[in-house]
Amino acid sequence: MVSLLRNGPRMLYIGTTKRFEFINFLIEKFQAEILDVDVVFDRSDEFNTIIYLFSDLKPSVNKSDVKDTLLIRKDVAHVLCQLIQNENATLIQAIRPAPQTILMRAIGDMEKMLLNIQKDFGGKIGSFNYCVESGCAASTIIGLTDKPLSRSAKFSDMYHNFLRLDQDYATLHRDLTMDAYRYLNSSMDNKEWHEFEIRIYDVYGAFQLHYQRLIEVLDSLELGIVIGESWSKDYPKFLFPVEVYSVHFLTFVEPKVFKQILLGLEHLSDGERIVDYDLYIKNKKVYWREALQNKTNINRETESLKARSEVYGRLDQKTKAELAVLEQKILGTRK
């Protein structure tokens, strides 16, 4: 539920003296999109291919030498196979891969995490343009972000420094994957991982729907890892047990912040309360007033709607659509 590492889009440098003819070919063959060099990375994901066109592809390239930038929403193997097999391959004077990119999740001190990776693997730290321009086909560029990696990474979300490594990509990717949690922890400074218990209660018994809705949000925001689930009993009143579904969750989020998220999920947009998401730490309940710094003269419904707005503001459109479907199903259990 926390993506720690993923690939960036693959990039190709292509030299051509028939620029416009080749661009038309890419648009017709691959539905390529012509984008500005500064935004193409933001619009792509790890299974896309970015093509940088040059009139003269030199051993060392600069951003200013790029004539056009195109995004193809196909993986690089598919693109290369089609280029080789097509008779219009004669339009290409030179071609070579650009440095590969690896994106990693960080929390807190990203410079410290980058330096720890450099300590283990070497390499040079600098801006993305520096890493691309000073790198070669065998280079790998590592970028850090404190935003979820499940969605497309934007340059505005990336840490301003990157690390360029001239090492075997496959071996590097494997080693970084194995040590990703260690590097993540190195950036957390004094932050700690917390084990929470989330107890789900619904008088109408729609536990599965509430569970799915909760997990959709936790997955989208990449807040931690589910480490256990079970049915249990709670006692809201003395000698009055009720059945609850417990989710044990490991997270780096502070208890009060996490409680605010749960508070926002208890209500629909019209204020109707549909579920109880109670938060416990070592069997001690975290109350909603604690999450609001024990403010006085506050209304639970009003604060819940504020919290809901904040949570939904952080979600992508796909997740919002899935939550809307689940909420309609939950309302259907009330009839």
Results as ranks from 00 to 15, higher is better:
residue 11 M to Y: 06
residue 12 L to N: 01
residue 15 G to Q: 09
residue 21 E to I: 11
residue 23 I to F: 01
residue 23 I to A: 01
residue 28 E to W: 05
residue 34 I to M: 02
residue 36 D to F: 03
residue 36 D to R: 05
residue 38 D to F: 02
residue 38 D to S: 07
residue 43 R to G: 01
residue 45 D to A: 03
residue 45 D to M: 06
residue 45 D to Q: 13
residue 50 I to Y: 01
residue 51 I to R: 01
residue 52 Y to T: 03
residue 57 L to R: 04
residue 60 S to D: 14
residue 64 S to K: 12
residue 65 D to I: 08
residue 66 V to G: 06
residue 66 V to A: 03
residue 77 A to P: 05
residue 77 A to C: 08
residue 79 V to G: 02
residue 80 L to W: 05
residue 89 A to E: 10
residue 91 L to M: 15
residue 93 Q to I: 09
residue 105 R to C: 01
residue 111 E to Y: 06
residue 113 M to I: 05
residue 114 L to N: 09
residue 115 L to Y: 02
residue 120 D to P: 02
residue 122 G to K: 08
residue 124 K to Q: 09
residue 126 G to H: 05
residue 126 G to W: 11
residue 134 S to R: 11
residue 137 A to H: 15
residue 140 T to A: 02
residue 143 G to R: 15
residue 144 L to F: 03
residue 146 D to A: 15
residue 151 R to M: 08
residue 153 A to Y: 00
residue 153 A to F: 00
residue 160 H to A: 07
residue 160 H to S: 14
residue 161 N to S: 11
residue 164 R to L: 05
residue 166 D to M: 04
residue 166 D to L: 03
residue 168 D to C: 00
residue 174 R to L: 08
residue 178 M to T: 13
residue 180 A to C: 14
residue 181 Y to N: 11
residue 182 R to H: 12
residue 187 S to L: 08
residue 197 E to S: 09
residue 207 F to L: 04
residue 208 Q to P: 00
residue 211 Y to W: 13
residue 214 L to V: 05
residue 215 I to W: 00
residue 223 L to D: 06
residue 224 G to L: 05
residue 227 I to C: 05
residue 228 G to F: 08
residue 229 E to V: 15
residue 230 S to P: 12
residue 231 W to P: 03
residue 231 W to M: 13
residue 234 D to W: 03
residue 244 V to T: 06
residue 248 H to W: 12
residue 250 L to F: 03
residue 255 P to S: 01
residue 258 F to G: 02
residue 260 Q to L: 02
residue 269 S to M: 06
residue 269 S to R: 11
residue 274 I to T: 13
residue 280 Y to P: 02
residue 282 K to V: 08
residue 288 W to A: 13
residue 293 Q to H: 14
residue 301 E to T: 15
residue 301 E to H: 06
residue 306 K to G: 07
residue 309 S to R: 11
residue 319 T to R: 01
residue 322 E to A: 02
residue 323 L to R: 11
residue 326 L to I: 10
residue 327 E to N: 11
residue 329 K to P: 00
residue 330 I to Q: 00
residue 331 L to W: 13
